[in-house]
Amino acid sequence: MQIKINEELRSYIEPLTESEFQALESSILGEGCRDALVLWQDVLVDGHNRYKICQEHGIPFKVTENTSFRNLEDVKLWMIDNNLGRRSISDYQRGVLALRKKEIVRARALELAAQAAAEDAAVAPPEGEEAAPKKSTVMPLASREDIARAARLSTATIGQIEKIQKTATPELVEAVRTGTISINAAANVASLSEEQQLAAVAGGKKELQKAAREVRELRNAGRPAKEPKEAKAPPSADYGHQPTEVDELRAENNALREKNAALLAEITALQLRISELVNA
Rank of each mutant, 00 (worst) to 15 (best):
A156F: 10
A156S: 11
A156E: 08
A156D: 08
T157W: 08
T157V: 14
T157G: 12
I158H: 09
I158D: 04
I158R: 07
Q160I: 02
Q160W: 15
Q160G: 13
I161H: 10
E162K: 15
E162G: 12
K163Y: 07
K163D: 08
I164G: 02
I164M: 05
I164A: 03
Q165I: 09
Q165D: 14
K166D: 13
T167L: 04
T167Q: 05
A168T: 05
T169N: 01
P170I: 03
P170N: 01
P170H: 03
E171Q: 06
E171G: 03
L172D: 00
V173S: 05
A175K: 04
V176T: 10
R177G: 10
T178G: 06
T178N: 15
T178R: 14
G179V: 06
G179N: 07
G179K: 05
G179F: 10
G179C: 09
G179L: 07
T180H: 15
I183M: 08
I183Y: 05
N184T: 14
N184A: 14
A186I: 02
A186W: 03
A186H: 00
A187W: 09
N188Q: 14
N188A: 15
N188Y: 11
V189A: 08
V189M: 05
V189F: 13
A190F: 08
A190E: 01
S191R: 11
L192M: 05
S193A: 01
E194N: 07
E194H: 03
E194K: 07
E195N: 08
E195C: 01
L198I: 12
A199H: 11
A200Y: 09
A200L: 06
V201K: 00
